[in-house]
Design a protein around this nucleic acid. Structure first.
Lengths: 236, 236
DNA sequence: TTGACCGCTTGATATTTATCAAGCATCACC
DNA sequence: GGTGATGCTTGATAAATATCAAGCGGTCAA
């Protein structure tokens, strides 16, 4: 079960913003207790309410963070490699507020929370990195809230597409990058409405076939979407 | 304009979680450059998009954080004394994602952002506090997102009332604590709908007269609201 | 190859939420 | 005591969004 990290894996997470510039010795201490695990698709990694024992890092595959209440479920975020998640619960030693599941076959590094907290106290640079990571995360959620409260679902979809378009170097054809039903849930709408919303964007030069998106009039779409630096991450 | 802190004011913010346990000398350095300002009601303290030069602390009155897009506006949070705000923008030296305005006559301490960052590097304990504060804030926004995405506006209102009820030591009669139109905006609904939603909660033992709330059947209301530890802050 | 499943779409309908237009209090101010 | 504000409420209506029920077109394993 518990498998030590391969050298290429530890150097991969070493390159993460969170671990950049920290003392070699401290980094070693951090990954000494860490281990890697392979997960098949659709495996629940943890459930909201559980206490957080590990900082997680996706190094391949992808992971969905989601939340539930009263029989309903919504996806909060989907994570691509290489990224860390649930830093906040880790540093607070508090229960998870979200659940996580793999979307595909994924390789995930688990770093014991207590080690993270220990190295945080020992390493100035790491402390700074954690703060930056948290602040980044915080601002991300604030953006998301603004997106949800200030825009209609159609506007959210349009901005999602604009965002993807710029992320893909403004290529006219690109992949949606996420299953439609998950995109719907992420955007706070039903799959049925997403289908209809895509239709509604056709006049603005949007064509979606399966997961393949074609933007024929980016300017028109942007004019409708009105993306804002203070809501839509430039790219991330 | 720029007025040094009175002793009782510095000891008041000294008591804040953010500054607790930090070295006296470092604390002095932190407030050396800080100053207090009195603001009348309805004054905009800063506007989203501006770069953040100060960490703010409300010591009396109250402050609303709000956001705008495309002519629309929504209130994100209202802050009561004593609390700090925009820690994330401060530590990242990034532009504000929200605007702030006073709701009443308010007294606010402004701590230069660069001082905050300097003391962060110099003081272990302060660094830990900042991380805790940020993690807390992050988790708060996540809770808020869950509230928005998983509940209808009626459910959000019911849970807001349950929350206030427990905050007020389960007193059957308490004050709403916020102007109705602001509550509506905070809950992501229109004032008109808030009025109607209050009506709809009458069968669950809720009576609202002006800003005075009467709960006649807390159990019934809770049964409808289904508050969750993972969405609704116990109290804060 | 076939059949079952799954995700997506579509249409019809219901529910939720917003908008618009009065009307009614309250309160500061003349 | 008027007289505008302003915030709240109410009713009528419209728009946004969800739900329900098929149906369609893939994939995958028997």
């Amino acid at each position: 079960m518990a498998i030590r990290l391969r050298d290429d894996e530890s150097s991969e997470i070493r390159a993460l913003r969170l671990f950049s510039g920290i003392d070699d010795e401290n980094f070693s201490a951090l990954i000494r207790g860490a281990y890697v695990q392979n997960f098949p698709p659709q495996i629940e990694l943890f459930t909201e309410g559980e206490t957080s024992d590990f900082l997680h890092v996706v190094i391949s595959g992808s992971v969905e963070l989601f939340a539930t209440w009263n029989g309903r479920e919504t996806t909060m975020e989907t994570l691509q490699p290489v990224s860390t998640f649930i830093v906040a619960a880790t540093v607070k030693a508090a229960p998870y507020l979200m659940s996580a599941r793999t979307l595909e076959k994924s390789r995930i590094i688990l770093v014991p929370s207590e080690d993270v907290r220990a190295i945080f106290d020992a390493d100035q640079t790491f402390a700074r990195n954690v703060v930056t990571e948290l602040a980044q995360g915080y601002r991300g959620v604030v953006r998301n809230t603004k997106n949800l409260k200030l825009r209609t679902s159609l506007e959210r979809l349009a901005n999602y597409l604009v965002h993807r378009h710029t992320c893909e170097d403004k290529a006219d054809v690109f992949d949606l990058g996420i299953e439609k039903r998950r995109l719907a849930s992420y955007l706070g709408m039903t799959p049925e409405n997403l289908s209809r919303a895509i239709r509604q964007l056709e006049p603005y030069g949007v064509q979606v076939d399966g997961s393949c998106v074609t933007i024929t009039d980016a300017k028109d779409l942007r004019a409708f979407a009105k993306p804002s630096e203070l809501i839509d991450d430039p790219c991330s």
